[in-house]
Amino acid sequence: MDHKISVGIVGGAGYTAGELLRILLFHPYVQITHIQSGSYDGKLVTEVHKDLIGETNIRFSDIEMDHVDTIFLCMGHGKSKEYMEKTDIPSHVKIIDLSHDYRLKAKGNDFVYGLPELNRETIAQAQHIANPGCFATGIQLALLPLANAQLLKDDIHIQAITGSTGAGQAPSRTSHFSWRNNNLSVYKAFSHQHLGEIGQSITQLQPDFNHDINFIPLRGNHTRGIFVSAYTQYSGSLEAAQACYKSYYASHPFVHVVEENPDLKQVVNTNKALVYLEVHQGKLMILTCTDNLLKGASGQAVQNLNILYGLDEFTGLHLKPSVF
């Protein structure tokens, strides 16, 4: 590129904004010009994101719309739509929203659903992108190759566990260390908000799919990472399933179909997704591992930024897992 992409971040104090900053500060084609936070206006970003001490001297400030090319919205669900309605955003400014507000198709919603492994070509032409949810990303990566091959013929059963950072930075009883440590619990069984976008993506590839998606989410006692286990009826061989998945993900650099049972530490601090398959008595089991703050949020948002501007998807995202 002959110039850097000027970036603003709205809602700059939370976990996803912190990870976005950590990546974009070292992105060779990005200049962060504005980071907005209603609670910390005028203060140094490093007063909130202390892991960035020594990396930046930027302060929280309002966004000057004429000086940005792209805005990332890192606010809570419902806040992005409110911001879009009350803010005069020039037509040239691209938006990547990390909330739930624009993920579901609706009349008047021009946001493209930003899962590159599903919509890469459409993302490249988009003005507005709705970044997928963290659980939704891991689950869809487990199911999209089957939907693409028209092989989802029965109900789908999913159990997935997420780290405490998935609940956001605002403290609550179930994200407090003394409750979360050495503990495990189910929440929003069969009713999680990410089910809508999962079903939407499956029917995009397999329009006649009309079976149940049974999802049991769990709160884990770790800080970051999502481990998905899913299964559904399947009549083929393991070799055929592996070939199906490897073919689907052959052109997608962050998804790796592995032949050894994976673990979360292989992906934490990266934008990778690992996918593992087993066949058991007429059922296909699919495991996926992702980092909820990166491939499930900020890393995927940067991946979408790269696609928007015709950059290599890996730009700024060569990250090593924290395995020790």
Rank of each mutant, 00 (worst) to 15 (best):
T137I: 11
K295P: 08
R22A: 07
H194V: 15
L287M: 11
E313P: 13
F190P: 02
G220Y: 03
G166C: 15
N269S: 13
N221Q: 04
G199F: 05
P207V: 02
E117S: 14
V275A: 07
K94T: 02
G163E: 06
V279R: 06
L118Y: 05
F177E: 14
I213A: 08
Q159I: 15
S39Q: 05
L277I: 07
I156D: 01
L294Y: 11
D110C: 07
N131W: 05
G166Q: 09
I198G: 02
G14F: 04
S37D: 09
T223C: 11
V48T: 03
I9L: 05
L305H: 01
V93G: 06
D101F: 06
V10P: 07
V112C: 01
L287N: 06
G225D: 12
L44S: 12
F254N: 05
L264Q: 03
E121M: 10
Q169H: 11
D208T: 08
V48N: 04
F177W: 10
D69M: 09
I58H: 02
Q206I: 04
A170G: 08
G18E: 01
C244V: 12
L317T: 09
E197C: 01
L311G: 10
S175I: 14
W179N: 14
V279C: 03
L218E: 11
Y40F: 09
I63L: 10
G11V: 03
E239T: 15
N57R: 10
I226W: 09
R173N: 14
P253Q: 02
A250Q: 11
P253A: 02
H157P: 05
L24E: 01
H192W: 07
V257Q: 10
R224V: 15
Q140G: 04
I53P: 06
D208E: 12
G199Q: 01
G299K: 03
Y187Q: 12
G12H: 00
S164M: 10
Q36K: 11
R173K: 13
P321G: 05
K105G: 03
V68W: 00
V275T: 06
P145W: 09
I226Y: 01
A243W: 04
G236C: 13
V323N: 11
L277K: 00
P262I: 02
E55Y: 11
M75F: 07
P145I: 07
C134H: 10
A17Q: 00
A167D: 09
N210Y: 06
F111I: 10
N57C: 13
